[in-house]
Design a protein around this nucleic acid. Structure first.
Lengths: 151, 151
DNA sequence: CTACAATATTTGTATGTACAAATGTAGTGT
DNA sequence: ACACTACATTTGTACATACAAATATTGTAG
């Protein structure tokens, strides 16, 4: 469906407006699809995101500001996200011995196991949207998005 | 900046994953930029969205479900969005005489005036991101996004 | 006409987000 | 040592979102 039909526009729109709406709406479609996946395992998308970042640390714990800077939505409240993950025993949180201002957050085995289960589901979710595009088109889309974003 | 640098990825990612993260992150960048614009006029992005939909009605009032289906984020709570706009006297809300289950929401002159002020700012915001792309590339990006989304 | 399903909207509740202020710790200059 | 600034995180508050349940109205089958 074209974006004009999605929002049932009555008058023609400029190309820049169509692109913006298309990106906003596409993100929404992706986000809702991913929400379902995460929710089925009692995670919010942002909680999943934190777990993924912690696994990327390969054993090393991450402190709060490291997590924050690696998140997609930079304005999330990391403290409360980690609180929720703690309750589910998917992460640990300890004061950093070298610098007591910092916290060391690490993923637990239970957290790693959960990610392992989710991996193929997430891969499939990511691949699903690319089904209609050739490899060449995928590369092009990726390049255009980066060019577009870097104002 | 490439998306790998944005999220400071340590290991290489698949193209489908890069595209998804790129769309999510780009939406975030656009959204935060637009939030500032809306906020400067005491509107949330979704409140602006409702006003824009109501103006598109060209005088005809819209009922709640019409507003809902034209919004980008379909899960917003339209009742409470309209509540906020009512308080600012940017819209009116009345029971529909033909069907008392429905509400008729219409934009006021004050609302139209506000949109008029915002129009050039929003146009500029939309155009800004396209600056790096040729007309041809813009068309291509738009087409690829629609192809991508329609799973 | 009555009971029941369908439609349109509102409300309640839990959760998430945005942002400012507060807290606690570390580094720096005097 | 002292005051001061910078840093890292947490907390408070208002607002937004997700989703189920409640309310009110209309349409419909028997």
């Amino acid at each position: 469906m074209k974006i004009e039909e999605v929002i049932k526009a009555t008058t023609p729109m400029s190309l820049p407006k169509k692109i913006i709406l298309n990106i906003m709406y596409t993100q929404n479609v992706i986000g809702e699809s991913f929400s379902e996946i995460a929710k089925a395992h009692d995670l919010s998308p942002e909680q999943y995101n934190v777990l993924r970042i912690l696994r990327g640390q390969k054993g090393k714990p991450a402190n709060m500001c490291v997590i924050q800077e690696r998140m997609i939505a930079k304005t999330s409240n990391t403290t409360r996200l980690v609180d929720k993950l703690l309750l589910k025993e998917l992460v640990t949180r300890e004061v950093c011995p070298d610098n007591r201002r910092k916290m060391e957050v690490a993923i637990t085995q239970k957290g790693l196991d959960l990610l392992k289960i989710l991996d193929p589901v997430v891969d499939n979710h990511e691949a699903k949207f690319c089904n209609n595009l050739t490899e060449k088109e995928q590369e092009l889309l990726n390049e255009l998005l980066e060019k577009y974003r870097n104002v």
